[in-house]
Design a protein around this nucleic acid. Structure first.
Length: 151
DNA sequence: GCCAACGTTGGC
DNA sequence: GCCAACGTTGGC
């Protein structure tokens, strides 16, 4: 089993949205490296740190779990979607997504500032300058450290 | 294949 | 809103 951190703008899709929906496809990823993580490396049962980005208090807001391995992201075929990709076809889809399920919403967001204060977490891509990939692998040690911070 | 221009991310 | 960093596009 692996661990991941996945970013989402809470204005668009938050831990509360997932809590309500319970299950959701992680659609809209349009970055090849992030796509490759979903397509090639994510397995059922992998745990996901659900990170809120581009908001007042950026940080890990809760947990999700991979429920279904990758399949084509339907939004790439939808001309009305902001994620539409005219170069993608049903025969040769370009974008893939996994399906995730809600696990937990933390009582308090584990803020980026808190994460930056933890020496053990200094190697996370999240805190590297210029790193903006929306999906990143997390080591077991990092995962456990973050979980311990939720109090 | 190079690279300039442009677009996006995301913290601050 | 600013801006650094990075990714993508497209002409050549």
């Amino acid at each position: 089993m692996k661990y991941w951190l996945m970013k989402s703008e809470p204005d668009v899709f938050s831990i509360d949205t997932l809590k309500t929906k319970k299950i959701s496809g992680w659609d809209g990823v349009r970055n090849y490296q992030a796509r490759n993580y979903m397509r090639d490396d994510m397995n059922i049962g992998d745990l996901i740190l659900f990170y809120h980005s581009s908001c007042e208090v950026p940080g890990v807001a809760g947990l999700a779990r991979v429920r279904k391995t990758s399949h084509p992201d339907p939004s790439q075929f939808d001309a009305k979607s902001e994620y539409f990709d005219p170069k993608a076809t049903q025969q040769t889809p370009r974008w893939f997504m996994v399906e995730v399920e809600f696990v937990e919403k933390f009582d308090h967001v584990i803020t980026l500032a808190t994460i930056k204060n933890e020496k053990v977490l200094a190697n996370m891509p999240l805190v590297q300058k210029g790193s903006r990939l929306s999906i990143n692998p997390v080591t077991e040690k990092e995962y456990k450290t973050i979980i311990a911070l939720k109090g």
